[in-house]
């Protein structure tokens, strides 16, 4: 399994043709206390860059974009009861949704962990 990162502070784990998507630890830290996560319904299809989810922190609502194109096969129902999971475990249990990847070539331009770390350090 390989993990990719976007400059919109999302991470993507790819296993076969399924991509698991979440926001990075840096993103949750910036957003602060998360009180609600609105997730896409199973079967929804996204083009890369579409609005896919919304994270509500105490202060503001923020959109999460689909980092690649695909069809939603599962959303993380644990976030409905415990949105703060995104704060406590953003890059594992706090995942948002899983996509069936429509076009694997879209992964090519994304960052690996080292490149993302460098990107965050430059902000």
């Amino acid at each position: 399994m390989s993990r990719y990162f976007t400059d919109e502070h999302e991470w993507i784990d790819v296993a076969g043709d399924i991509a698991t998507v979440g926001i990075t630890d840096y993103a949750q830290e910036q957003l602060g206390d998360i009180v609600f996560v609105e997730l896409p319904a199973e079967g929804t299809t996204f083009e890369k860059g579409d609005d896919a989810a919304v994270v509500e922190s105490v202060k503001a609502a923020s959109d999460v974009y689909a980092p690649i194109s695909g069809e939603v096969v599962e959303s993380n129902s644990a976030l409905e009861d415990e949105p703060a999971l995104v704060n406590s475990d953003a890059e594992e249990d706090g995942w948002f949704f899983k996509l069936r990847i429509a076009d694997a070539s879209e992964l090519e331009g994304l960052m690996n962990e080292a490149a993302y770390k460098k990107f965050v350090a430059s902000l």
Binding site: H9, E10, I23, A27, L31, V55, S62, D63
Partner: peptide, 8 residues
């Protein structure tokens, strides 16, 4: 995602 820049 949006909001990270907006917040500031």
């Amino acid at each position: 995602m949006s909001g990270i820049d907006d917040v500031t």
